[in-house]
């Protein structure tokens, strides 16, 4: 599967990815309208820092996802075809078990919707919006085997 990788030398912590992610997951897909939406669309990717170095974080769609194992409603699942971790929002009760066990803290509770905020790899679009928007090409979206060539 294609995963997200980050070249942290290129990342400037401009957080354009966070904004593109919010807009991409908003109802209107329009930044000027998205900021007035209720509930507000939250970023699935967050740029964190270690010392002075920015480190973007988002769901890695793990091979053995702990969130899926911990999910007590069965609303999280690992899709065999796409290898993505999917959520059935209708079944989620906001217990935050997935938040508790994610080793990367890449799942956050959304107190407004009571549904966890998690990267869906923009699966219904041509490519993840964070990748598309990054002005320095710090976010790489590729198969693991292709990574060596990058």
């Amino acid at each position: 599967m294609k995963r997200l990788y980050y070249d942290i030398e290129k990342c400037m912590a401009c957080k354009t990815c966070e904004i593109a992610c919010c807009v991409g997951h908003s109802l209107s897909k329009d930044i000027m309208k998205a900021i007035f939406e209720e509930p507000l669309s939250l970023p699935r990717i967050k740029v964190k820092e270690k010392g002075q170095k920015p480190h973007p974080m988002s769901c890695r769609h793990c091979d053995e996802p702990r969130c899926v194992m911990a999910c007590m409603t069965g609303c999280l699942s690992k899709d065999k075809k796409t290898s993505l971790v999917l959520i059935d929002k209708n079944r989620c009760v906001g217990c935050w078990m997935c938040v508790m066990v994610c080793p990367y803290a890449a799942i956050r509770p959304d107190q407004k919707t009571k549904i966890p905020v998690r990267c869906d790899m923009c699966k219904d679009l041509d490519m993840p919006q964070c990748v598309k928007s990054c002005p320095t090409q710090a976010i790489i979206w590729c198969e693991e085997e292709e990574l060596a060539k990058k």
Binding site: Y5, Y6, D7, H55
Partner: peptide, 13 residues
Amino acid sequence: ETIYLSSAGGTHV
């Protein structure tokens, strides 16, 4: 750690 790369050389930063 596999997802963080460095174009300046080296991988896991």
